[in-house]
Structure formats: C-alpha cells, structure tokens
Design a protein around this nucleic acid. Structure first.
Length: 878
RNA sequence: GGUCGAUUAGCUCAGUUGGCAGAGCACCGGCCUCACAUGCCGGGGGUCGCUGGUUCGAGUCCAGCAUCGACCACCA
C-alpha cells in the first residue's frame, strides 16, 4: 500500500456507524482524484452527463434516486476498467429562479421592475453564488463520484457560447423564426410559456348562456365577450345555416354591436347550443378560426391580466373581476338565458400556478418538426434505446404531434436572445458576438430584451459540457454519452430536446441509452410537495440510517416500470440493518484472522467452500446482468440475498467451528482463506451500491490496491458448481428438517436432539461424510442408519428421499403430535391426489414436454413414499 | 376525448420467454447460542380484480367488464 488510509485501526464497534465513515472517505476519494476523467486514458469510454439540478434547489428524493443510479453505473464501470466520466453541473433555471426571487422581492414590497434588469441580475448571480453550492455539497454527501473538475453551469461562458452558436446555426438553417401568434401568457411571471409549460387542472366554473340577438351560446369566459369579433357555427348545421355570412346587430353590455357569423369545422354542433363566440385575441381555437375567416384580433385583456382600454367601461378591471361584472350586467340587461355549473380544465403556469391567459404576441420559435423527424428515426432505429421500452411510445406520440417550440421568454435571468435590431434601417441581425453597431448602416442597435427558454440551453447539455462548439478531446472521446438517466417528467422537456438538438448540431445521437426511472412518492403515494408538508428530506434519511442504507433502498425501489414508487422509513431501516449485518459479518471474519497465512491456504476446498464460492459467482453474474439491463432492484436483491442468507446465515455458521478450533490450523487457514476471499469479492461487488461501508471494510481486510474504487469489479471465472450446490442443498434440507421439528415440537434451542437419519442409498455417503456439519448446525447428535425403523416417540422429517427421526424421549405431548401428523397426512393426500389426477390425463402425458412429465412422476413417487411413512407413523402413535 | 399503465399475503411491492405463487415489513411461537436483539431459529397467511377464451397446463397470452392512476388534448 502506497498511501496511508483514513480507516482507523481501533477496535471495531459492534454496530456500523455510518456518519464518521462517510465523512472520512468522500473527501479522501476526491482528494486522491479518483473521480477525475482523462480522455486519453485507456479503456472503452463510458460517459454520463448529470441531469443538471436547478442551481437554487436543494437535494430532494428525485435527485437522490437519479444520482444514486448514475453513481452505481459509473462506479461499476470505473471498476470494470472503462474510461469513465460523469459530468456534474447545474441549470440556471430561468423561470424557477424568477419565481423564487420575485417572492423574496414581494416580501420586501418590491417588484422586479422596481429593481430594474441590472440589479435583478446582480441579485440572481448573488443568489446563485450563495446557494448554488448547496446541491453539489449534497450530491457529495450522497457519494456521487462525479468529476467535479468538470462541473458546468448552463450560464458558464463556455455554455453561453454554445447557446449562441446553436441559435445562429438554427437561425441560418431557417429553423428559428419570429411569429405573431397566440401564446400562453403568465400574467404573474410576465412572460410567455411554451405549450409544455402549461399545466392543466380541473376546476369548477359557470357555463353562462348568453343571448346574441337571435342566437344563444354558452361560454365559461364571458369577459372575453368584449373581444368578440365573430360568431361561428358548424357549416353543416341546418339550425344556423340562415345566419352564416350575415352580420348581426345585437344588444350587448356596451350597447349595440355588429358581429359576423361564420361557418367553421372547428365548431362542434353537439356541444352547447352549437354556436360559439369567436375571440381571436384570447383563445387559441378562436385565433385559428379568426385567421381562416379574416376576423380581426381584438385584445381586451392585457399582459398584466387586466382589461385594456378596448374594454371600455371595464378597462383596468382584473379579468376575473370583470367576468363577475359582465355577468351581472348581462343579467340586468336580460341577456343571460341561464347559467349551468361546469367542470373543465384550465391552464396554469407550471411554475407559479397562475391561470394562463392566451394572448397574441410576437415571439421567437423553433420549427422543431424537421428536427423531430430525425429524432424520431433515431429511436425507431434503436440508435437511441429508451428503457423501459414502453416509454418509446410516449416519445413517439409527442414527437409525431409536435408543434413549434416557443423559445423566447420575457424574463431577465437567462441567455439573452442573440438578436440585434437596427431602428434606423429596420434590419435584424443574429450574431455570435455582441453587436455595437448596425453592420448594415453603422447606426445604433439594441439587443432583443428577451431571454431563451431554460430548456434551450439544457438541450445542448450532452455536448456543450464537453466543449462544443470546439472540437475537444472530451467531445471526441465521450460523445455520444453512454446513458442518460432521468425521470419521465422531463422526457419531453429535456430528453426530446436533447435528441433533436444533438442530432441536428452534432449529427449524432447524444446518448445511446435513456433509462427512465419512476418518480418517488411518499408512503401514501402522494406526490411530494412543500405545500402538502410531506416532503421527505433525503439528508435527514441519510443522517438517520446512513447513506449506504439509503442508496441501497433506492436501488431496491428502482424497478423498471411506469408507476411511481413509494418510500417509507421501514424500507430504509431494513437496509440499515443490512449494512449492519455486513459490518458484523466482517467483524467476525476480521476478529478471527490471527495466524492467517494466505499462501498456506491452497489445499483443496471443502464442500461448504465450494458451495459458497459457487453461490458467489452466481451472484456476480446475476448482478452484472442486472446492471447491464438497468435492473437495479434485481442487482440489489441478489446482493442482499447472498450476503444475508448464503454468506451470513449458512456459511459463517458453518465456518465458526473451524475458526474456533485450535487443533486444526490447516483447516482453519482454509476457512480463513475462503472467508477473506468471499468477503473481499462481495465488498467489491457491492461497492457501487454501498460505497462507504465497502471501502471501510475492504481497507481493513487483506487486499491489494489503494482503494476499493480502483479495484476490479468481480467477474465470475466459471459457471456454477452444480454438484456442490446440490449436495449442500441436501445437507441444508436435513438441517432445516431437524430445526423444523425443534420448532414445531417446542423443543428448547439449547437442547441437543437425537436424530436418526435414514438416508436414501444415493445420499448416504454424503450425509455420512458431513454428519458433523449437520450436528453443529442443527444442534443434534446424528445417527446414520439405512435400515432404521422409526422409534415410537419421535417426530418425522423429510429431506429429499431421506427420512429423519428425532427422538422425543417422552418430552412431548403425544396427542399434539398425533394431530400434527393427521394434518400432515391430509395435506400430503391432497397434494398426491392432485399430482395423480394430472398424470392420469392423457392430454398431459402425451403433449407436455417429457422432462415436465418426468418431474411430475418423480414428485408423485416422493409424495407416495411420504404418505406411507406418515400413515405408518400415525399407527405407531397408538 | 385519446393514450399508456395498474389490480398478487394485513401493508408496500417483485414475479424476464406460459411449467408447483415470492421478498421486505407486519403478525404468531421459541431463543440475549462467544459477529450482529439493527440479531437467531421456526411458523401461519394469497380462488393472483371479475367473466369468458386459447392451451396438456394461465398470475403470465387474447377479449370483455369493474375500479384506480398517470400522461396527452383548443370541445367553447
């Protein structure tokens, strides 16, 4: 060993105490540079870019899950000799930061406009500097082995350059354009929102039937009446055919108005009265109808959510207040026919939950249709694998019906749109560099005041973080990245955009695999939110149970599927216990290593050693296969079962006698060797999931190398030792049979039982050879007698085709035993009848595969033998 | 309205090509056995939502129904 290690040599406590171990190892790993990547390093590249958490955020369960999974993959690949890179970083989260800072300002009685753009941005940067480190500190706490030397932020100079490059290229390709269109406007955030950023929520409302002269129509938005520039009916609706094309003069809240009736396919004649009012300025459908029929746009609600001057006497009123007033006024004019309760979905801002107002305004768009086709193709052709596969369909569906992506935002915090306007000659210039003067006339220019959608810069993340647009070694080595791990909630927001932009700008997919994990919910299945007060703080969980236990729990919960997972304390507690189990197993091994000479342990392995080794290799294969398929739960499950059931419950108990005996140093050494190699390998196998405890224990065990992080990931040298597994299986059955009797008969665990084993001929030598092992594990004296008859006062156990009699020596209630026997006879008879019936059916014996039929026949033979024995036993009971 | 998914033990959930229903927790009984009571040994408990179909054989495949959920959607 070349470096001193921070693990203490003090006596090992009998409980695993995670806090100190975690605090010790992470800084040490980081200090030694284990996380750092080098493009020139040998090994197949394996790269993951982190889904950048919002810079202002703190670690929540979703982050904990996604980053644990990534860390498991990266650690396993790193140990397995890959040239690994895990790029960490954070997102500037334009609108989210706005909401947050504006709430702060609100508390001070100010608005962002009071502050002004420069001061607001200064504040945002200060906030970023102050709290931006929180999440990365917490990721370290989780054990995330990211290459922190390559940490990126979406508003870094380098990434900002990438954003401009991308914008210019898309603009030059004619894929970015400006359009006057109806958009989703958030009156609180004072910005436009992309369609995706509008959430739907069912709300109760009033459906008001308003008289429009001879016609009546229903609406949930009476206030937009002031913006009506037409009425529409379905072209094939005979009821209203006479009105189509006519302009009606009708009474309204603001006197007589003229309104034209048009026919349009968008109208559903079945709904309401079959007539709709057309308000092109405040409804997307109406906007389209208006365009088709040349109806003017009349904007009566402003960007602030208040009625405009065009609203006449209602000008200045809040839109909802105006709604009430209009309905009152209509009622007093006798223009309301009736009002019905109505439940419908309203659009809300995904950040501040304010009701979105459809408004017409000029915005920048990306024509994503052609990009989507390429991105669609990549998934169809499996160049990008979306896992679990079922998510592909969702991706296809969205991509196929994709609409232009509105990318401008009337916000300040973000990437300013690289477009300059010259007022002198009216020219528009898109530029990679800041412009001071108009390239055409040399006159003054002003930059577009808006910023880009946050997701524009995160859409470049897989290559912008690797140095794009420069041609860097990082880009050449690590792009395309190997896998993207993320939640389905940002499949469209992020994954789809990365696929489109990556394929367009890099001409290559941004990632080979996309592993979509499920979302984490509280124990009641509720989505966690601050307002519900059900947020589980991962740091608190790690504090209470340890990071490794927490990570293991997340891995266990990470089942491939589409429905969300729930996390409860009991789950984490169970894995805290698992960590403790591992700790104590190691403690047993470590405290019995005196005199251990690795070189002298070459002697032929005994059956239990062959068995545990076979089990270990089976586990190694299972874990590797599971990780390759992103089946984290299966990997964790295999590890749990091996460590607890096979290694601790069986092998350690088997090993103890040899360990404690001083008279057979060779045998002891052999067992020590098995213990050390099995445990050391297990720790390496477990390390990606439980990095801290495995490092701590590995350092204390005999090992090669300076850290478990750099040790090779185990691979199975051979297949299973089937003979060993079968033979040990039988011995274990005999032991369990005896223990079973002890339990059923209520015999003291302290007593040594007398067991007579009537072994089936084929098993006799094995049972004879390992009788001492059975004796130890079952706490029984074992007599092997192939011709034994069952003693009168005894209980019967069965292992395979062997019988075990445990003498009860008058300790047991005969009636109780008789009852037990009767019950067992009944059960056996039922099972036997079932098997017989199955075998009696020619369809089965003729058409089922031979080995299945043979298995059934064998089963029946065993059942019949057992039945005969049981019946005989009962007669012996008298 | 469209799409996808779920329904398995008291609870939370596994169950990959159809071949004897599993885990963790909870529960019951017995143990402080010199690694661990965050432990050990044993045990009980399920018509796999309902109805049909395919098959020698269905938790698994197909159809319908019921209940719940998620996502998408311009029905005013």
């Amino acid at each position: 060993m070349t470096q001193s290690n921070p693990s203490s040599s003090a006596p090992i406590p009998d409980r695993y105490e995670p806090g100190a171990v975690e605090a010790r190892w992470y800084p040490e790993w980081e200090r030694r540079g284990y996380f750092r990547a080098e493009p020139e390093r040998p090994g197949k590249p394996y790269c993951i870019v982190i889904p950048p958490p919002n810079v202002t955020g703190s670690l929540h369960l979703g982050h904990a899950l996604v980053n644990t999974l990534q860390d498991i993959l990266i650690r396993a690949k790193r140990m397995d000799g890959f040239n690994t890179l895990w790029v960490p970083g954070t997102d500037h989260a334009s609108i989210a930061v706005h909401v947050l800072l504006e709430r702060q300002l609100e508390a001070e009685g100010k608005t962002r406009q009071d502050l002004g753009r420069a001061a607001f941005l200064e504040r945002a940067w200060t906030w970023k500097e102050e709290s931006g480190g929180t999440i990365t500190r917490q990721l370290r706490r989780l054990g995330a082995s990211c290459d922190w030397s390559r940490e990126r932020f979406t508003m870094d100079p380098g990434l900002s350059r990438a954003v401009r490059e991308a914008f210019v290229r898309l603009y030059d390709a004619g894929l970015i354009y400006q359009d006057d269109y109806i958009v989703n406007w958030c009156p609180r955030c004072q910005t436009v929102l992309a369609d995706l950023e509008v959430e739907r929520e069912e709300r109760d409302a009033e459906f008001v039937y308003i008289k429009y002269g001879p016609l009546t129509l229903g609406t949930v938005r009476p206030e937009t009446k002031l913006g009506d520039t037409g009425l529409a009916v379905h072209p094939a609706d005979p009821r209203y055919a006479q009105y189509v094309g006519r302009t009606l003069r009708i009474p309204s809240v603001d006197g007589e108005i003229d309104i034209r009736v048009v026919a349009d396919e968008a109208v559903d004649p079945e709904f309401g009265t079959g007539v709709i009012k057309v308000t092109p300025g405040h409804d997307p459908t109406d906007f389209e109808i208006g365009r088709r029929h040349n109806l003017p746009v009349r904007t009566v609600i402003g960007f602030d959510g208040r009625m405009t001057a065009l609203a006449g006497k209602y000008a200045g009123l809040d839109r909802f207040e105006c709604r009430r007033r209009i309905v009152e006024d209509l009622q007093s004019l006798g223009l309301v026919e009736r009002i019905e309760p109505y439940r419908h979905a309203v659009g809300l801002c995904y950040r501040c939950k304010t009701v979105v107002e459809p408004l017409v305004s000029k915005q920048w768009y990306v024509n994503v249709k052609p990009l989507a086709e390429v991105a669609l193709q990549a998934v169809r052709e499996d160049r990008i694998r979306i896992l679990p596969r079922s998510w592909s369909k969702t991706y296809f569906h969205w991509m196929e019906s994709i609409r232009p992506w509105c990318i401008s935002r009337q916000l300040w915090w973000g990437h300013r749109i690289p477009v300059w306007y010259c007022d002198a000659d009216g020219s528009v210039h898109v530029s990679r560099t800041d412009l001071e003067a108009c390239p055409k006339c040399g006159g003054p220019v002003r930059q577009d005041p808006d910023v880009l959608d946050t997701w524009f810069s995160s859409g470049l993340w897989p290559f912008s973080t690797l140095g794009w647009p420069d041609d860097t070694p990082e880009l050449r080595t690590y792009y395309p990245t190997s896998v993207l791990v993320t939640g389905y909630d940002i499949l469209f927001f992020w994954v789809a955009r990365m696929a489109m932009l990556g394929l367009h700008l890099m001409k290559e997919v941004p990632f080979r695999d996309v592993y979509i994990h499920t979302l984490v919910r509280d124990p009641q299945g509720q989505k966690m939110s601050k307002s519900k007060g059900n947020v589980i703080d991962p740091l608190g969980v790690m504090e209470r149970f340890g990071t490794d236990a927490f990570r293991f729990t997340l891995a266990v919960l990470a089942v491939p599927g589409v429905h969300d997972i729930r996390i409860a304390d009991e789950r984490v507690e169970a894995h805290r216990n698992f960590a403790n189990k591992l700790w104590n197993a190691a403690r047993l091994v470590l405290s019995n290593l005196d005199g251990y000479a690795p070189a002298g342990a070459r002697a032929a392995a005994g059956l239990p050693e062959r068995w545990i080794e076979s089990r270990l290799w089976g586990t190694v294969s299972a874990v590797r296969e599971a990780l390759d398929a992103y089946r984290f739960s299966d990997a964790a499950g295999a590890l749990y079962q091996f460590v607890w059931d096979d290694f601790c419950d069986w092998y350690l108990e088997i090993a103890k006698p040899a360990l404690y005996r001083a008279d057979d140093p060779a045998g002891r050494n052999r067992v020590q060797h098995a213990l050390v190699t099995m445990l050391e390998t297990t720790l390496r196998l477990l390390h990606p999931v439980m990095p801290f405890i495995t490092e701590e224990l590995w350092q204390r065990l005999p090992h090669e190398g300076e850290s478990i992080m750099l040790a090779p990931y185990p691979s199975a040298p051979a297949g299973a030792d089937e003979a060993a597994e079968r033979e040990m299986g039988l011995l274990m059955q005999v032991v369990t049979a005896i223990r079973n009797i002890r339990g059923e008969m209520r015999l003291s665990p302290a007593s040594t039982l007398a067991a007579i084993v009537k072994a089936a001929a084929a098993d006799e030598p094995l049972l004879r050879a390992h009788a001492p092992l059975i004796e130890t594990l079952a706490r029984a004296r074992v007599t092997l007698d192939p011709h034994a008859t069952r003693p009168r006062a005894s209980a019967l156990g069965v292992a395979g085709r062997s019988e075990i009699y445990v003498e009860l020596e008058g300790l047991v209630d005969v009636d109780a035993e008789r009852q037990r026997l009767e019950k067992e006879i009944k059960r056996t008879a039922e099972a036997m009848a079932f098997t017989r019936a199955k075998l009696a059916r020619p369809e089965f014996t003729e058409r089922a595969p031979a080995e299945i039929v043979d298995k059934e026949r064998e089963k029946l033979a065993e059942q019949e033998a057992l039945y005969a024995k049981l019946v005989a036993s009962l007669s012996w009971m008298g």
